[in-house]
Simulated assay, not measured.
Amino acid sequence: MQANDVMTQNVITVEPDTQVRDIARLLLENRISAVPVVNAEGRVLGIVSEGDLMRRVENGTDQHKSWWLKSIFAGANDAGSYVKSHGRKASEIMTPNPLTIEETMDLGDVARLLEKHHIKRVPVVREHKLVGIVSRANLLQGLASAGPQPSESPADDRAIRDTIIREIEDKAGVRIGGINVVVENGNVELWGLVDAKEQRMAAQVAAENTNGVKRVENNLNLAPRGVGGF
């Protein structure tokens, strides 16, 4: 399997000038833990994660911070740390120039890349433009779905996956950002979080009605309120 077999498509992104408060709200509302920062051409400039936001302390509000946050930032007095902790825009607090991968990279190579660089996710690019993102959770989903490998991976699996994703997003009324679809030899597995039981069933029906699908395993769970995603 390759990166484009498990990657999350329709990635939620921010622009370099997006305000920190808006980024935090975006992470919470979409139950995700990081967003790529892209320019007008769709090129990946950086990534803002929950960790980057935790390093930020607003001027004049230290008295409202918990003691452990104060202790973390007590020694952060160099220029770089100052920008990270006081910046108000994505471009100021992001991790710049992140690693990216091509959509055809083998999942084994993706896993080794994440392990080697101690990162949780990696943007997927096509001709230098963002087309998806692969997280550790996506890799586990691919591993859980993988059966005996055929001599040649069926090209139809990717067409089936794209069709299901479009159906869920455009017609089923379900936000695709919290869902991942994995297809292996026509067998479909749905992973991620949805807001209601009706959405869980709608995603399953969308998959079952797609030509070429042999079986659907619905692993979607209801999202606890206030709990972030991966």
Rank of each mutant, 00 (worst) to 15 (best):
M1S: 13
Q2F: 11
N4M: 12
V6Y: 12
V6C: 02
N10P: 00
V11E: 06
T13V: 14
V14C: 15
E15G: 06
D17F: 07
T18H: 03
Q19N: 14
Q19L: 12
I23A: 09
A24C: 08
E29M: 02
N30V: 14
S33H: 06
A34P: 03
A34Y: 05
V35Y: 00
A40Q: 14
G42R: 02
E50K: 08
E50S: 06
R56N: 10
H64L: 14
H64I: 02
K65Y: 14
S66C: 11
W67D: 12
W68D: 11
A74Q: 11
N77T: 13
D78S: 12
A79L: 10
Y82L: 12
K84I: 03
H86W: 04
G87V: 11
K89E: 15
A90V: 09
A90K: 01
S91W: 08
I93W: 07
I101L: 13
M105P: 00
G108I: 06
L114F: 04
L114D: 02
H117R: 09
H117S: 13
R121S: 12
V122G: 10
V124N: 04
V125I: 10
K129D: 01
L130F: 10
V131L: 07
S135Q: 00
A137W: 09
A137C: 09
L139V: 10
L143Q: 07
A144E: 12
S145G: 04
A146G: 06
G147C: 00
S151K: 11
S151Q: 11
S151P: 03
E152D: 07
S153H: 02
D157A: 01
D157N: 13
A159D: 09
I160L: 13
I160H: 02
D162S: 05
I165N: 05
R166S: 15
K171H: 12
G173Q: 12
I179L: 15
I179N: 08
N180D: 15
V181D: 10
V181K: 09
G186C: 09
G186P: 08
V188N: 10
E189R: 15
L190K: 04
G192P: 11
K197Q: 13
Q199N: 07
R200F: 03
A202I: 01
A202M: 09
A202Y: 00
A202K: 02
A203K: 01
Q204N: 14
Q204P: 07
A206N: 00
V213F: 09
K214C: 06
V216R: 12
L220I: 01
R225N: 06
G226T: 05
V227A: 06
G228H: 01
G229D: 06
G229A: 11
